[in-house]
Simulated assay, not measured.
Amino acid sequence: MTEESILQKIRGGLIVSCQALENEPLYGADIMARMAIAAESGGAVGIRANGANDIRQIKSVTTLPVIGILKRKCHGSDVYITPTLEDVEEVLRAGADIVAVDATQRPRPGGQLGSEFVALVKQRFPEVVVVADVSTYHEGVLAAQAGADVVASTLSGYTEYTFPLQEPDFPLIGALSESLSIPVVAEGRIRTPRQAAQCLRLGAWAVVVGSAITRPQEITQSFVESLHRCLQEQTAEGEQRV
């Protein structure tokens, strides 16, 4: 697929992030492939996947474009989403149609900042669609100037200089969509269909949802916590009546 066809295929749609870490109950490429099949049958337009094994398995069972990443902790750096050129190459060899990289302005293992790394990736792999995962408006602008094909709000609230957030970063999504000439993908803490639709209204090209769809332990926890709050409220009300 060409860059234009890939971007048109995902426009206005839902990209499902099918990921599980080693300490999670659904970890395994075969399980993530089944998640991807379920997402495709539900109408998803793309998949975001972590690691070469998962990417290969998912590509073998779906026709959807795959955004590939490689999460890896590196000594001396907080950057962990596809942190090196070798990681980019591994993701692409596995068959990813798009590669996403951390484009925050934090030093990488090689010393580059996010925008510098985006430029290196585009220089090494000029035909590849590159998604720049950012946490601030400034980072999004710098990534676009460096040659990113797409900017995503993925890391807003997850860097030490952005505030922890409970909701999607709607202001960031809107500001980037309004000012950039390249597609902006909304990602991060999108938990409901209403929130996903709001991202499109703000100008997002597509929306990525992960935990709210593919992490049953977190979905279960949200229900359990809600029930616990309800019981606590009922107990408090009962004590007030006594």
Rank of each mutant, 00 (worst) to 15 (best):
S135R: 01
A148L: 12
G188D: 05
L21P: 00
R48T: 03
N53Y: 05
T82P: 08
I213D: 02
M35V: 09
E178T: 11
F117T: 05
D169K: 03
T220H: 08
S153G: 11
L200G: 06
G76V: 10
C199A: 15
L92S: 05
I190S: 02
P25N: 09
E90T: 14
I173Y: 05
Q145I: 14
R34F: 12
L85E: 07
I47D: 09
V66A: 00
E86G: 13
R11P: 02
S179Q: 13
Q123V: 02
I10Y: 02
V130T: 14
A38I: 00
Y80R: 14
S77D: 11
V61R: 11
G203H: 04
R229H: 09
I6F: 00
S156G: 10
M32F: 10
A96E: 01
R215Q: 15
E218A: 12
P216E: 15
E178P: 03
G28I: 04
K73D: 15
V185T: 07
Q195E: 15
T84K: 07
A148T: 11
W205A: 03
A119T: 06
V118S: 02
H138I: 00
I10A: 04
R229Q: 12
S181I: 03
Y137N: 01
T162P: 00
R108T: 01
Y161V: 00
S77Y: 11
G114M: 03
M1Q: 13
L200R: 12
Y158R: 13
D30I: 07
I58D: 08
G51Y: 02
A146H: 08
D149G: 09
A49W: 09
R201E: 15
H228W: 14
G188W: 02
R56S: 12
R106Q: 10
L172E: 00
G13P: 03
G76L: 07
V91Q: 13
A206R: 11
P168Q: 12
T214E: 08
T235F: 10
E40T: 07
T235C: 13
G76C: 08
I219A: 11
P107N: 11
T2L: 06
V224D: 08
Y158M: 13
V150C: 01
K59E: 00
D102S: 02
V185K: 04
Q195T: 04
D169W: 00
K71M: 15
G140N: 03
E90S: 14
W205R: 06
I213S: 06
D133T: 08
A152M: 12
A148H: 10
Q217C: 06
A212L: 10
G157L: 03
S177Y: 01
A33T: 09
K71I: 10
S222K: 14
S5Y: 02
T2Q: 14
E139T: 01
D87V: 13
I81R: 08
Q145F: 08
